[in-house]
Design a protein around this nucleic acid. Structure first.
Lengths: 139, 139
DNA sequence: TATCCATTTGCAAATATTTTGCATTAGTAT
DNA sequence: ATACTAATGCAAAATATTTGCAAATGGATA
């Protein structure tokens, strides 16, 4: 897995390398699962980063694609850094909310099928795919 | 497309056939796209159905699977009746939020792949799959 | 049909989440 | 070092969701 440098990400995206944004990207970089705003605020509160700053930074990051938003059923939105190599997705436990990754969702194939059926779309820019079930501990 | 009878749905699920719940299911039955709580409340306000009733009914319906929750990026949750025949999913315009359906997401195949990779899950109970892009009008 | 009981509802209020306005701070280019 | 603008923090507003509780009502039973 490639390590992404928060400073470089910000610079490339045309953002300033501020302390809040650097810390936010470092947090996402280190996390093994996508984090909710709540999670992020809880971590960054120690560094005196304001909740509003988190909202605004995430919004900006998602808008230009530096961060990916993930929406699980019945939960608040979560955020993670986009894949550099393999396009990964998530299996989520409907009871304990444990999250595990998997790769290989066969998008190209399905995009093609979908576009073939579509009257209003000619190009797909992104996708989401999530699996739900009880994890072995909860089952 | 099979027509589903709200009264029967409620009875089968062990719920009472109350006016608010019948109207809510009729609304979803007639809608061509998944509806947000906001959408639903806006419609049912004419029948003096309270916002809280909508929240509670939807919660109960989703919990037992009578209604399916759909979560698009950057939007509030939406709700629709589950498929009776083909498992359909959505293509969403990232600009105007237009929603179109497509079928054929090849779940079985991908579930198999995912479970093979998984250490913590042995069975998948549901999935979500959404495509995003600019619709022809917005592009 | 009348009665009973548990579910469901509506209203009020609490809580949680997200957005906005604005003055101040602080990157970064020159 | 200076200047310019993006970005931040704080307060407050706006939205969205949940909770408590008394009253209403569906539907089973007598």
């Amino acid at each position: 897995m490639q390590i992404r440098d928060p400073g470089a990400i910000l610079k490339n995206a045309g953002f300033r390398a501020t302390k809040p944004r650097l810390l936010l990207l470092e947090l996402l970089e280190k996390s093994h699962t996508p984090l909710s705003i709540h999670d992020i605020v809880a971590k960054l509160i120690n560094d005196d980063i304001d909740r509003v700053t988190v909202y605004r930074s995430i919004e900006a990051f998602v808008r230009i694609g530096v961060v990916r938003e993930v929406d699980f059923q019945g939960q608040l939105a979560r955020y993670e850094l986009p894949d550099t190599e393999y396009d990964h997705h998530h299996i989520v436990c409907t009871k304990c909310h444990k999250i595990e990754d998997f790769i290989g969702c066969d998008v190209e194939r399905i995009e093609k099928k979908a576009l073939h059926q579509s009257r209003s779309f000619s190009r797909i820019s992104s996708h989401s795919f999530d699996l739900y079930g009880l994890c072995n501990s909860c089952a």
